[in-house]
């Protein structure tokens, strides 16, 4: 019978009073009214701590000596904070294999991102604003390719790269990432470019501007938000990739994910390398995450269907 519910219509139900024959709310409801918000906040804190715990644990473990890590759990730092040391990081930064592979990650990720953005934007512009026969079919093809799993292409592409003599090279990894990044890039940017007011382009065309100029001066500046999101998504996608590197890169050209995966064969004894290495590899994505949060969220949400 009671219309009282948690936290609603408070003006009808001042705390602790029962007016107009309305039955005084039961003890549970009164409890919830008073403490409901606090309980929710507590729940939120618990969930937050629970979600942070895995990463936090790895962070602490990466700051303890391997002797400590094999003797006791990372949580003992709360009682003995003196265990914390930067030695593992110092060691890892001396470790040529790890440093080189981090650099390889950069060498793979930056060109892959730039190329996808550039080729994607050019293609998207053509599909949005240039007239040619078969354009709509081409766009359907691009949309169809978005969900294609990379597994369908890795064996044939390995043969193609071998025939070209670049199998195992960084350029092969980049080429594959670009090819598989393009369908989504074109799709995303084309839809965004379509929303550019037609008048703007027409005005530029009547003024005799070349397509390339229109593209650079009109389309790119207006399409900036979409390009930023795409770039961030593509950047993270490539930075975090393992499979493509495993298939197409030799050990010398391996990115950090590949190098760390090698260490996983004996996890507990290599924890002093794997922990700091994993954190160094996370550093860039986390900076991107906190610095460009809005673009980041949009980029991830937009690209998650890939």
């Amino acid at each position: 019978m009671s219309h009282t519910t948690i936290g609603t219509v408070p003006e009808l139900m001042p705390a602790g009073t029962a007016r107009g024959g309305r039955p005084r709310p039961g003890p549970w409801i009164r409890f919830m009214m008073r403490f409901g918000k606090a309980l929710l906040r507590l729940l939120a804190v618990l969930i937050g701590v629970f979600w942070l715990l895995p990463t936090f644990g790895l962070a602490v473990a990466s700051l303890r000596s391997s002797a400590d890590n094999s003797a006791t759990g990372w949580w003992t730092v709360f009682t003995a904070p003196a265990q914390l040391t930067l030695d593992n990081y110092a060691q890892v930064l001396q470790n040529e294999r790890i440093v080189e592979s981090l650099w390889n990650t950069v060498l793979i990720t930056v060109p892959s991102t730039l190329l996808v953005v550039l080729l994607g934007a050019l293609g998207a512009y053509a599909l949005a604003w240039l007239d040619f026969p078969g354009r709509d079919w081409l766009f359907v093809l691009v949309v169809a390719l978005i969900v294609v799993p990379v597994q369908v292409a890795i064996v044939p592409d390995a043969r193609i790269f071998r025939a070209l003599g670049i199998y195992g090279e960084i350029s092969a990894v980049i080429a594959f990432h670009v090819a598989f990044g393009l369908p989504f890039a074109i799709f995303l940017l084309r839809n965004f470019f379509l929303n550019i007011p037609r008048d703007l382009l027409e005005a530029a065309r009547i003024d005799g501007a070349r397509e390339m100029v229109i593209f650079a001066r009109v389309v790119l500046p207006i399409g900036w938000p979409a390009i930023a999101s795409l770039a961030i998504f593509q950047f993270l996608w490539v930075w975090n990739d393992l499979l493509v590197a495993l298939v197409f890169a030799t050990s010398d050209n391996a990115p950090i994910t590949y190098a760390l995966r090698e260490q996983m064969r004996s996890f507990s004894s290599n924890l002093d390398t794997i922990g700091p290495g994993a954190f160094l590899s996370m550093l860039v994505p986390l900076v991107v995450f906190f610095a460009f949060q809005r673009y980041f969220v949009q980029g991830v949400l937009a690209g998650s269907g890939k």
């Binding site: 969930i47 937050g48 979600w51 942070l52 715990l53 895995p54 990463t55 644990g57 790895l58 473990a61 990372w74 993270l236 930075w239 975090n240 990739d241 393992l242 994910t257 760390l260 995966r261 996983m264 996890f267 924890l271 794997i274 922990g275 994993a278 954190f279 590899s281 996370m282 994505p285 986390l286 991107v288 995450f289 980041f296 969220v297 991830v300």
Partner: peptide, 20 residues
Amino acid sequence: VLFMPMAISFLAAGVTFRLV
């Protein structure tokens, strides 16, 4: 906090949970 794991690689997440 809840969204942050999306930023890190599956490899880093795998390392994290090996420890967990």
